[in-house]
């Protein structure tokens, strides 16, 4: 059975002034997988994420999520926004609201009839699922550490039980223990809730542990989109340098060691 495409990007072109970021870019994301997106700085990983969710309007091409068109013709925003959750790089929590209010914001927006009690219970559960303790709900985002902010942002992204979760560098700035826990959290979400996850990351450990497939952005396109082993066998010089460099080998080695242990 051919895997079902939950995201389909065809021939997308993104351009800022004369600088072309993407040219004829194609990408498929399958239902229920964790896709890691890697690429050098400035290859437009975040731009690609923004294009797929409709925050960035491409110059040409076609983008579809769950069979609904994002570009050229935009399906109704509400219809799509209930199905996707986005974790921005620094969390992008609303700084004027408490943590609990942040998580409740999408609930109240999409389900205005929701009672306060139910909203508080759902928010509490999402925070707990994201690995946060009780009592964090009353805090303001500025009182949290970077790792906690990311967890709150994840809870907010999951508030509506989206079908696709977009993560922009979820483990950047976390300590290795926190990053490993975050990976587990994301894998658990995928397994338990059947989420599809689109993850932009630079973290080699996350790539190796968590992803089902890896898409490599270079030369304004996705040059390969395949399981990690296949990607690593590619002859492309950037890929060779990325996975063959000292950090790439170290991450690979430690993962093998932990598997055999």
């Amino acid at each position: 059975m051919a895997p079902e495409n939950i995201i389909e990007v065809r021939g997308v072109r993104n351009q800022f002034g004369t600088q072309v970021v993407h040219k004829d870019l194609d990408l498929d994301v399958h239902r229920g997988e964790i896709l890691g997106v890697v690429g050098g700085s400035g290859t437009g990983k975040s731009v690609l994420l923004r294009t797929i969710v409709g925050l960035q309007i491409p110059k040409a091409g076609k983008v579809e999520i769950l069979g609904k068109q994002i570009y050229p013709k935009r399906a109704s925003a509400k219809e799509i926004n209930e199905d996707i959750g986005i974790l921005f790089q620094d969390g992008a929590l609303f700084s004027s609201m408490t943590v609990a209010e942040n998580v409740m914001a999408p609930l109240r927006e999409h389900h205005p009839e929701i009672s306060d009690e139910l909203a508080e219970e759902i928010a509490g559960m999402k925070l707990s699922l994201s690995g946060l303790n009780e009592g964090v709900g009353e805090k303001m985002p500025s009182e949290l550490s970077g790792g906690m902010r990311k967890r709150v942002a994840l809870a907010r992204a999951m508030a509506l039980d989206p079908k696709i979760l977009f993560l922009d560098e979820p483990t950047a700035g976390l300590d290795p223990i926190g990053a490993a826990k975050f990976d587990e959290l994301i894998m658990g979400l995928r397994d338990n809730l059947g989420l599809t996850i689109f993850m932009v990351t630079h973290d080699l450990d996350s790539l190796i542990r968590a992803t089902d497939r890896v898409a490599v952005l270079a030369e304004k396109q996705v040059i390969i989109n395949a399981p990690l082993d296949e990607v690593r066998r590619s002859n492309h010089p950037w890929i060779q340098e990325y996975f063959g460099g000292p950090r790439g080998r170290a991450a690979q080695g430690s993962n093998l060691a932990s598997q055999s242990a």
Binding site: V103, E117, E120, G124, M125, S128, E134, D191, N192, G194
Partner: peptide
Amino acid sequence: DHHKVLLEQAAGNLVSCETP
């Protein structure tokens, strides 16, 4: 089976962020 996982997960995470 699919619902089992969700119910099990919910059982361990029943927390409400009640506002004081």
